[in-house]
Amino acid sequence: MLHTFVAYVEDKPGVLTRVASLFRRLNINIISLTVGRSERTGYSRMTIVADASDQAGHRIRASLYKLEDVAEVDDISGVSAVTRELALIKVAANVENRSGVFELAEVFRARIVDLAPESLMIEITGVESKIEGLIQVLNEKENRVLEVCRSGKMTMRRGHHTSRVLRAMGVASEPPAANDAYKGDESQAIHLE
């Protein structure tokens, strides 16, 4: 199954290698990995999508935490979350046939971000299936898709506050709240029964 992890990692050289190397060592293929600055100074946020066995989630998360540069890991496989991907798609289109592409872009709520005599560039954000849908219909028309650049998935839990955010808000300082946080993570807690 596909596992999705969100990790806060120190913004230092070599951290990406350490994270990627962990998956390599476990012989797990990374489907997509996005990294960027986060709301925390000095920390980057990664969204990692990997194809692994159903039981692998716990071990991957536990192993990620063993990396010194990893501050926090959230396993958000199967939880309510917003997932987005950004794609830039360059399509062969000239003055005769570009209006069809405009229409398609409209339907997919995509934007035209560059226009050249023989091509145009579409920017689209959305879930994976939406982006793949657009690429598919573009290929069905006479307009050839010349280039596709996809960001990989970015994911954020809906309505969930990480323990660190709660702490920053001064909520989770007492033990009961900390316990609640663990319960909230029941999907990733050690399930043995």
């Binding site: 716990h58 071990r59 536990a62 192993s63 935490y65 063993k66 050690i190 043995l192 029964e193």
Partner: peptide
């Protein structure tokens, strides 16, 4: 002490990590 060892080789009934 290492959570990554739990259920790695042998599934267990109770883990005290």
């Amino acid at each position: 002490i290492d959570p990554a060892e739990i259920n790695k080789n042998i599934p267990v009934d109770i883990a005290l990590v």
